[in-house]
Design a protein around this nucleic acid. Structure first.
Lengths: 216, 216
DNA sequence: TAGATTGTTAATCGATTAACAATC
DNA sequence: TAGATTGTTAATCGATTAACAATC
């Protein structure tokens, strides 16, 4: 058994390829070369071939890739052949937003457990799900064997809640909390730090744009 | 004038450093070495020094960095000494979520214009802001000199709306739409593709975890 | 077969890290 | 001054891209 490490960036690109392949399939396209695909993605054709080659040989020399077969393979590789249950912790502004956001469901990710520590929220129904207290995190997630968590709590309690999620058996967390959090090696922590992203935009404007839209 | 290109990753790390410095300052810490700082960030000390060195000499040899002065410098570099107005386009699930999310405001980013193409939404007040039709994007953003846009519309209309934002003079866009969009060189498009992030998690579980939590 | 395109190796590019002279 | 730590150069590492033999 060889242990070729697959770059994180490759996995990210794979799901971008997949999105594009779904569109192509809908348009009735049967096959395409890595060169044509790369143009759509705005990438280099060698990169497309190399990304795919990490997982096997999916192309046909002289012809290219069959769209439908490739789409199928990418879904399998990414683990999208099955749906996933997701546990959301934190029902503040962002958490509430996420639970009513339909985008996750469409991709096969179902928020099926919601936790908050506010007694005023516990017991309420949100999008058909009863909100539970944080003391229920470990038993409920364990029982239902949920593997994905979404962390949308205040920064101060983030590490404590994250540890509970990990204890409960979650192995992948989508983290919206702007804080330096630690997880065991085996757990994947995917950070979505909106304030960092905005600051990057601020930097860009400051460096490249003429000053304007000042707000006091 | 020299044109040293500053890596995107450096800018991202700068805003992570800033968050940590704010905490340290609140704790009354006066100074710290790059080694100690790097430990907090989970990074290499040489990287911290190099990231900072792109922008000037902020340290004191033999001592380290004064927390307060460094925080101040990073705020200046990132363009956070001023507040920024932000235009939000798309008042669906995610857009509604974002407008009530208080996290942006706290960091000095104020959503001050909201657009949607749905006649049922136009004219309504949301968080004290009157929703405008998409035909108002160009005149309103131009008039108010807004430089940052948030894109939260359906994929099908994303490119058209994005082009309007660019036409209106926006130079930085936080994009939540999972689609391949194009902007002029001068415009910074920051993608936040939640479904890609979830698929990365799915991949991680599939590769590393035991199968479980199957949803049909 | 001739033309096209893959899969893969080798070259290039860029980012991270180690090392150290400069200097507080 | 002696000890510590910066700023920066050089070495290393990893990811992207060019090139091409294999082969449909």
């Amino acid at each position: 058994m060889k242990a070729i490490k697959i770059p994180e960036k490759t996995v990210t690109r794979l799901s971008i390829y997949l999105r594009c392949l779904e569109e192509l399939e809908n348009d009735g396209v049967v096959s395409m070369s890595s060169k044509e695909l790369a143009e759509r993605f705005g990438l280099n054709s060698a990169q497309v071939r190399k990304d795919l080659a990490y997982f096997g040989q999916f192309g046909v020399r002289g012809l290219g890739y069959y769209i439908s077969a490739l789409r199928n393979n990418l879904e399998r590789i990414l683990g999208l052949k099955q749906g996933w249950e997701v546990a959301l912790v934190g029902l503040g502004n962002l958490g509430s937003a996420l639970i009513s956001y339909k985008g996750f469901q469409e991709k096969g990710f179902t928020i099926s457990a919601v936790f908050d520590q506010d007694p005023a929220k516990i017991g309420r129904q949100v999008e058909g799900i009863q909100v539970m207290g944080t003391s229920r995190i470990v038993p409920v997630i364990r029982k239902r064997k949920i593997r994905i968590g979404i962390l949308a709590v205040p920064a101060a309690s983030a590490q404590a809640v994250l540890s509970l999620l990990v204890e409960a058996g979650v192995t992948a967390v989508l983290n919206f909390v702007p804080a330096q959090l630690t997880v065991p090696e085996s757990v994947k922590l995917q950070n979505v730090d909106l304030s960092v992203l905005l600051k990057t935009l601020s930097y860009h404007i400051t460096r490249t744009g003429r000053p304007s839209a000042r707000k006091t």
